[in-house]
Design a protein around this nucleic acid. Structure first.
Length: 273
DNA sequence: AAACGCGCCAACCGCTGTAGA
DNA sequence: TTCTACAGCGGTTGGCGCGTT
């Protein structure tokens, strides 16, 4: 089957959007939502294809879009994530609230790529780190942790599972020292003490209140090598980390990275409980 | 003032993945 | 299982604005 591109239909407008078109699209979506992009332009009275409407909405008109220049912190985050994920712009955008994949892609090609060329040492450092953690293989394996040849999966006897039903939102009834609301506000990772104790610590202890730290006595191998700390930077850990890679929350992500480090030899095997 | 070159970025193109019939 | 429609993704393009000659 060869499907004709939707915009080839006669009479459909292409090119820059006018303020009037924007207004129609926004008004329609605010009233009816955007369940079916193909049907939307016809119903809204726009001479555009659905694809064009979707792009205009997601890249420009969405109310949660952050306009303006990228902050230095955002740029650093993009660089870090690009080292890890490559040109997976949507995955990178998922880590930058209010920024679109298109915008990030443009910033990368117009600013950040040049900056890294001028200062290759920064890129080299990160690449070195990735290699040390065997992330090259990880990236080439299409980001599927199952593809690690040495990965033992979560059924491994040495693996200490995190109870999936335990999250910051349902720990308030378990006598933890923070209410569900305050935990959420502070983005503290709290997990089941019984199932996640490792060397006398838990992920809840690993992360400080602002998720910016990693106690030196917890992962000495990592703490002693500053190059090994980047996956745990506060900018990456302030929200659920890499949900697109594995799992849906911080607990799963921490478990994922823990396995990566163990497989790379950066950490000892976890003790059995 | 005009011509030209270049960078930026919104928008488009074509492909892939996925859900439903 | 196959076909179809659709959404989403990454690569690419084209127009605009600005600086330089």
């Amino acid at each position: 089957m060869v499907r004709a591109p939707c915009c080839e239909k006669m009479g459909l407008k292409k090119g820059p959007w006018t303020p009037e078109e924007d207004q129609i699209l926004v008004a329609y979506i605010q009233r009816y939502g955007h369940g079916n992009w193909r049907a939307l332009p016809k119903q809204a009275g726009l001479l555009r294809c659905g694809k064009s409407c979707r792009l205009r909405w997601t890249n420009y008109l969405r109310p949660d879009i952050k306009r303006g220049n990228f902050s230095r912190e955002e740029e650093e985050t993009i660089i870090e994530l690009h080292e890890l994920l490559g040109n997976r712009w949507s995955a990178i955008a998922a880590r930058l609230p209010g920024r679109t994949d298109n915008e990030i892609k443009n910033v990368w090609h117009t600013h950040l790529k040049k900056r890294l060329k001028q200062n290759p040492a920064v890129s080299e450092t990160r690449r070195h780190t990735a290699e040390m953690l065997d992330l090259e293989a990880y990236m080439e394996s299409d980001l599927k942790h199952e593809n690690f040849p040495n990965h033992q999966g979560f059924e491994s006897a040495n693996y200490v599972p995190v109870s999936p039903q335990q999250s910051s939102s349902d720990l308030s009834s378990q006598g933890t020292d923070c209410s569900a609301r305050s935990c959420e506000e502070r983005n503290i990772v709290t997990v089941d003490e019984q199932t996640t104790k490792i060397n006398g610590n838990s992920w809840g202890n690993v992360l400080s209140a602002d998720n910016s730290g990693m106690p030196e006595d917890f992962f000495p191998a990592i703490a002693s090598d500053p190059q090994l700390q980047f996956p745990f930077s506060s900018s990456l850990f302030s929200e659920p980390v890499y949900p697109h890679l594995y799992g849906q929350d911080n607990d799963d992500s921490m478990d994922f990275w823990l396995n990566v480090f163990i497989e790379a030899g950066a950490l000892p095997e976890l003790p059995e409980i």
